[in-house]
Write a protein that binds this DNA or RNA. Structure first.
Lengths: 229, 229
DNA sequence: AAGTGGTCTAGACCACTTC
DNA sequence: AAGTGGTCTAGACCACTTC
């Protein structure tokens, strides 16, 4: 666990970048005073998790960020827009602290009156709105959520930092937007939206419930996976 | 590889059912004449792939089919309908062999004139259409596709059997259906659809390209994953 | 007490890539 | 020739569950 954690931390904190060579098995044996099998297992598991790529005879390397994959929806929408070479901009409609009423309490599986944050943000690619993000967040899991400037960095970015992602659930459906949504997304009448409900867990608790709404015709979700061999 | 394959085959062919206990590490050591570490690794990898659940002190057991998971879209739509306790029915509009024209050749990344099958099927839950499936399949990868009776079992079921799934790619978008689609799905005017494009690879080749179209408001895709610890 | 998985060790042989 | 990962062995100690 320590070996994997150590390498993962080096990657997360930028000391190891995609393509960089990680310590070899032999180096890990020395550094961590373990047997080679243990070092081997740590690197092998990092490979299986897609964090590291290993090449016999060459070494182990930090994997490139997966361009498509199960994780695509987890990517920061800001990064995604920028990766297409476009400007990203966000407009924060509101971000306030509330107390859970019956409906919100059920949503986040907490008691009545629990402190929550409620944010509504419109994300833009160049000048076009591409996503409306409405989100409820458990305040105790992300205490400073309400003070954050989400026009500078996304809730997703903040949340994954303060509440390490443990489990994610997505539901996707097509729908016709109401007038408010249509206005925010700048849609013509009769245009459908692609709506994703996204719930995230951290440290055993449901931490966030979000609705991500996209213009149906100008946005695609994609995902790919390969079967382990 | 042999150990994992052997256990996986037992599961796939029903000799081991969800909840059943798999051979223990000690038994694998005897049967396959390997060291315990090798048996341990095989079972551990099956666990990491979600095939097997292991409990210290108790044993290893065939995992329950994941109710939600990355693989949900891979499940047979027939099974999915039945798992909701509803009747499943399919209407095969057509299933014919064609030669790839320029457009289809590009779609499946093959040469002009390559033999393909083209099927169009409407899937029903109880009496309601819930999915229109249009599919192009590489004939050389699934030679008997054209003779199959897809009102009895789905293309997906046949394909995963003859062409083991290696990689899947999904794209999802919301759209307004054309008149034909609207009729097939029994939709009112102004109702959006959720359209999934699904490509599958087997043995290194792109084998199938399908469009799965659902009534937007009566269907949801869902997916969840947990981060490895 | 016997069986289970969790984890680790110290060593081995191998094919491959790098220099 | 030196370094890399791929894989395996035979043994160990442990905590837990079952009977």
């Amino acid at each position: 666990m320590t070996i994997k954690d150590s390498i993962f931390e080096d990657i997360r904190e930028g000391r190891l970048k995609p393509g960089d060579q990680t310590p070899s098995e032999a180096e890990l044996v020395e550094t961590f005073k373990v047997s080679r099998m243990t070092a081997n297992r740590a690197l092998r598991e990092l490979q299986s998790a897609g964090i590291v790529v290993r090449r016999a005879g060459r070494g182990s390397f930090v994997a490139e960020p997966r361009p498509i994959g199960q994780l695509i929806e987890i990517r920061n929408i800001a990064d995604e827009v920028r990766s297409r070479g476009h400007a990203y901009r966000a407009r924060v409609v509101h971000n306030v602290e509330i107390r859970a009423d019956a409906e919100r309490a059920a949503l986040l599986e907490v008691g009545l009156g629990t402190r929550l944050f409620h944010s509504l943000i419109v994300h833009h690619e160049t000048e076009f709105p591409i996503q409306v993000e409405e989100r409820f967040v458990l305040a105790s899991a992300a205490p400073r959520y309400g003070e954050r400037d989400f026009s500078a960095s996304t809730p997703n970015e903040y949340l994954t930092r303060v509440a390490p992602l443990e489990r994610v659930e997505h539901r996707v459906c097509a729908a016709m937007p109401d007038t408010g949504m249509r206005t925010m997304l700048g849609l013509a009448e009769g245009e459908p939206v692609l709506m994703m409900t996204r719930r995230t867990w951290s440290r055993g608790r449901l931490v966030s419930h979000a609705w991500l709404t996209h213009p149906g015709n100008r946005f695609e979700l994609s995902a790919a996976f390969s079967v382990e061999t």
